[in-house]
């Protein structure tokens, strides 16, 4: 190698280092902060020098945080199961059956997924009040359908289109009904796609903020993002950075773990959702 090649190689790795550093530093710093209390918080440090877990203890021992986590888990998983349930049959129809207006329907579904949530906020508020589910998890499960359902339908439709047609033909010759085809032929093949789509929809529902902020009104019904956003200290003028960072780390670690485990699947799912596969 010439010295020019070395320069190239070193600058490439330097660029890689900078990208990785920028990507992970804020989270690293959040962990660092969450391990500090009292006046330590107001002293900037770049490397861990104190390991005080009292912020974690105070978050988890607080009145509502565990409840908020339970709310988030319940809302996000119910939303995802519900959306997947509706999406499996719908995407079979959209991907495998030719009918009039299919293209238009697909466009409409895609359109709904790009909806600005604020545009339905007033109408949804009225609906939720009318149904009597304001300030309950059901208000969030209902409203989250607006983004989880189109997303799951879209991704699963893309996936189903790619499945070989022969297996379906064979089933039809054997006299299988469309319902049999979905449950007995396609479902076993669809598990990987269902897991990926479900995971992405789960992350979307877990992170949602606008609806959760608007449709809940008490500390006990809040989801995690709202709880963190509205976490306040003992006085109005003091922001409890230590506890906020501890809470942030608690809710982010499982997500990061999931993302790292399902890395490849997530990338393919995002690509299918974003770019037409």
């Amino acid at each position: 190698m010439t010295s020019m090649d070395y320069v190239k190689k070193i600058s490439f790795y330097f660029a890689v280092f900078v990208v990785v550093f920028i990507a992970i530093f804020p989270f690293y710093y959040a962990i660092l902060t969450s391990l500090k209390t009292g006046t330590d918080l107001f002293r900037v440090n770049y490397f861990p020098d104190s390991f005080d877990f009292s912020n974690y203890a105070s978050v988890l021992g607080g009145r509502t945080f565990l409840r908020n986590i339970a709310n988030s888990v319940f809302v996000a998983s119910t939303t995802v199961i519900f959306a997947l349930f509706l999406a499996v049959t719908a995407s079979y129809a959209l991907a495998r059956v030719k009918f009039k207006g299919r293209g238009l329907l697909l466009m409409t579904i895609l359109g709904v997924s790009m909806f600005p949530q604020i545009a339905v906020l007033a109408g949804l508020f009225e609906l939720i009040r009318y149904l009597g589910i304001y300030n309950t998890p059901w208000a969030l499960i209902l409203s989250y359908t607006i983004f989880t359902l189109p997303f799951t339908v879209w991704v699963l439709t893309t996936f189903m289109r790619g499945l070989p047609v022969e297996i379906e033909e064979a089933a039809i010759i054997d006299g299988a009904t469309p319902w049999d085809i979905i449950t007995k032929v396609f479902m076993p093949l669809m598990w990987p796609a269902l897991v990926t789509t479900g995971l992405l929809a789960f992350i979307g529902a877990w992170n949602e903020f606008l609806f959760a902020l608007t449709f809940t009104s008490s500390e006990i019904t809040r989801t995690v993002p709202v709880a963190i956003a509205l976490l306040s200290g003992t006085s109005q003028y003091e922001t409890p950075w230590g506890t906020i960072m501890a809470a942030s780390v608690i809710v982010t670690v499982p997500l990061i773990a999931l993302v790292l485990i399902f890395q490849r699947k997530i990338v393919s799912g995002l690509t299918a959702g974003g770019v037409k596969g």
């Binding site: 992970i24 963190i228 956003a229 982010t252 997500l255």
Partner: peptide, 11 residues
């Protein structure tokens, strides 16, 4: 680089 994407916006 997936980490920033996975972190909730509020966080």
């Amino acid at each position: 680089i997936l980490i920033p994407w996975a972190i909730p916006t509020i966080v």
